[in-house]
């Protein structure tokens, strides 16, 4: 969560709770709910590394809040993050292990393995579809769900390739 928080702070200074809300708003249902405690822990770590600096602001009849601001070191770190390409998710290694090893182990039928896996993917796909239907207005969320679906589609296509190899 480090770098997304840094990116949000690069836009404008904010305190922890504001950051949590911004995350939720930006990613919507597509992103697992951020824990507020985790946000504060991460902010503390970032401040310790000198990437952000905090400043307490007094509030009447409430406890003080700490507003964070990005530092030059933080901007550099962020720039480096944006500059470097991102490693994509890799093939499900575990299923592949099962598929390759199943015949020797005298265990499961390989077609059954593939079918089970396919059912699983289809169910996940269905879940994603429902999710997408719930949160139709958040474009970031839609993009993320679509990305996940395309990965699933690729996994399903790969299953078909595996099935071809069975013959």
């Amino acid at each position: 969560m480090r770098l997304p928080l840094l990116a949000l702070l690069a836009k404008e200074p904010a305190h922890g709770y504001e950051l949590k809300q911004a995350l939720e708003q930006t990613f919507g249902a597509a992103y697992p709910q951020p824990n507020i405690g985790q946000v504060y822990v991460t902010l503390g770590r970032l401040e310790k590394n000198g990437l952000i600096k905090g400043q307490d602001v007094d509030q009447s009849n409430r406890p003080n809040k700490r507003v964070y601001e990005i530092t030059d070191a933080g901007r550099e770190e962020l720039a480096a993050w944006f500059a470097e390409p991102t490693e994509g998710p890799r093939v499900r290694d575990e299923f592949f292990m099962k598929l390759v090893l199943a015949p020797g182990a005298g265990g499961s039928d390989r077609l059954a393995l593939i079918n089970t896996q396919r059912r699983h993917y289809l169910n996940v796909m269905r879940g994603l579809s429902r999710l997408a239907a719930q949160d139709r207005d958040n474009r970031a969320a839609q993009l993320l769900i679509e990305g996940a679906m395309l990965h699933l589609q690729a996994d399903l296509d790969w299953l078909e390739r595996c099935q071809e190899e069975l013959d």
Binding site: P32, L122, R126, G127
Partner: peptide, 18 residues
């Protein structure tokens, strides 16, 4: 195969999206 109701797999979906 019949597909499950969506509620049956919330964790998996979240997992995919993490």
């Amino acid at each position: 195969s019949a597909l499950h109701a969506p509620s049956a797999s919330p964790t998996t979906v979240a997992d995919v999206l993490r």
